[in-house]
Design a binder for these strands. Structure first.
Lengths: 123, 123
DNA sequence: TATAGCACTATACTTTAGTATAGTAGTTAC
DNA sequence: GTAACTACTATACTAAAGTATAGTGCTATA
């Protein structure tokens, strides 16, 4: 009936399950309206809360705070509190966070190509 | 005051605006709960509506129909109606849609690496 | 004393996304 | 005639995501 054995099928299943997990992890960095702008801004260097707020138009402090917590939990961003007066807090990408640039790069690349070929199909 | 000229600043802005558009285009393929599963399934070859429904656990026909329309509009998927009896409809990835595999690949790659380094940080 | 800056939090609300359930219109098989 | 298959659509609902607005506790400056 089938060309592949039961064992092979199990292996394929395990493999694709791992892939799904990996893709989901990636999605956690980019889902929602504000995560990509935040990561994008932090790719230019560490920033304070207010700096990010000014960098990202229309974001509310509630959303910024929420998404930063999320990114911190997912190991994308670190939060450092300095006991200066008043306190300053710095947000910085982790190594994983920085390496996300590679993903962004292919997203840009694909997006540009897709735009080009979509234009081609309209003519 | 600043190290770069006004002209240079304008160029940077234009460039980053293009990048934002490109990334947004990419996001349109992957946002929501069901687009990635659909594209993922179609990467294994063209499928009929019911086949996709069976392939993707828990998806409702409403969502499948909606997301397929969305993907069609965005030039990721083509819809072909055959006037057999009863009608059969086939969904297939466009060239752009197929090339999206590259993006998925780096997403998997990054996700796997991120998982590894996150584990490392826990120990 | 008033105003402003920093780094948020709280509450209430609206909007968007997704679900549940049923139904349409055709054909084929029992 | 009734059940099942295909490819959906319609309506009503819930859940999740995001917004608006105000407020906290601190300090520094005018």
């Amino acid at each position: 009936m089938s060309r592949i054995s039961q064992l092979q099928l199990e292996q394929v299943k395990k493999c694709s399950a791992t892939f799904v997990l990996a893709v989901n992890d990636t999605m956690n960095v980019i889902n929602g309206k504000w995560k990509l702008p935040i990561v994008g801004s932090l790719l230019f260097g560490k920033k304070r809360f207010k700096e990010l707020e000014r960098d990202i138009p229309k974001i509310t402090p509630r959303m910024l705070s929420k998404e930063l917590k999320d990114l911190e939990m997912n190991g994308i961003v670190t939060r450092t509190v300095y006991d200066s007066i008043p306190v300053t807090v710095e947000y910085e990408l982790t190594k994983s966070g920085e390496s996300f640039k590679r993903v962004l790069d292919v997203m840009v690349e694909w997006g540009l190509q897709h735009r080009k070929s979509a234009m081609g199909n309209m003519k």
